Computed example of a mutant assay.
Amino acid sequence: MDSVRIAGSVLSVLSLLAYAVGVVQPYPGRSFSVTGVMVGVTLAAVGSPGPSGGEGA
């Protein structure tokens, strides 16, 4: 699950950078950066270990 958390973190950071660029210089498709942030945060949350610290219940 670490790979999912890492992928979510990378996607979130890249999407935030794309959003910042879109604020400075508008470009077509910039609204997808917001979607990227939402998906990245979700993947980071799903990939993090639960309260028990392990996988599964």
Rank of each mutant, 00 (worst) to 15 (best):
V41R: 00
M38L: 15
G53L: 04
L43R: 00
G47C: 07
S12P: 01
P28C: 07
G22N: 12
A57M: 04
G40C: 08
G53D: 04
V24M: 11
G29L: 09
G53P: 03
I6R: 15
G36A: 07
A7R: 02
V41F: 01
V34L: 15
G53C: 05
E55S: 14
V41I: 15
V13A: 15
G47H: 00
F32V: 11
S3K: 12
V39M: 14
L17H: 02
S31C: 02
A45W: 13
G22K: 08
L17K: 02
A45K: 07
V23S: 08
L11F: 07
P49W: 00
V34Y: 14
L17R: 02
P49A: 08
G50R: 12
G53M: 09
S12Q: 10
D2F: 12
S15K: 00
L11G: 03
G36K: 01
R5K: 15
P26A: 11
Q25F: 10
A44V: 01
G40V: 08
Y27I: 06
S31Q: 14
A57F: 12
V10D: 04
L16H: 02
R30Y: 09
P26G: 08
V23F: 12
I6W: 10
V10S: 11
A44Y: 13
S3A: 13
T42C: 05
V23C: 09
F32Q: 07
I6E: 11
T35E: 04
V24K: 08
G40F: 02
S12I: 02
V41C: 02
G29R: 10
S15A: 15
A45S: 14
G22V: 07
G36V: 05
S3R: 14
P51M: 06
V23H: 06
G56Q: 06
L11P: 03
T42Q: 04
T42S: 13
V41P: 00
A44W: 11
A7E: 03
S9W: 05
L17G: 12
S9R: 13
Y19G: 03
A45Q: 10
G8F: 00
S3M: 09
S48C: 03
A18E: 03
D2Y: 06
Y19H: 07
V4W: 01
P51F: 07
A57R: 12
S33Q: 06
V24R: 12
V21S: 05
V39C: 11
G8L: 02
L14V: 14
L17W: 07
G22E: 09
A57K: 07
T42H: 03
V37S: 00
Q25I: 12
S33I: 05
F32D: 09
G50Y: 05
V39G: 02
Q25C: 04
G53N: 04
M1R: 06
T42V: 14
S48T: 14
G54E: 11
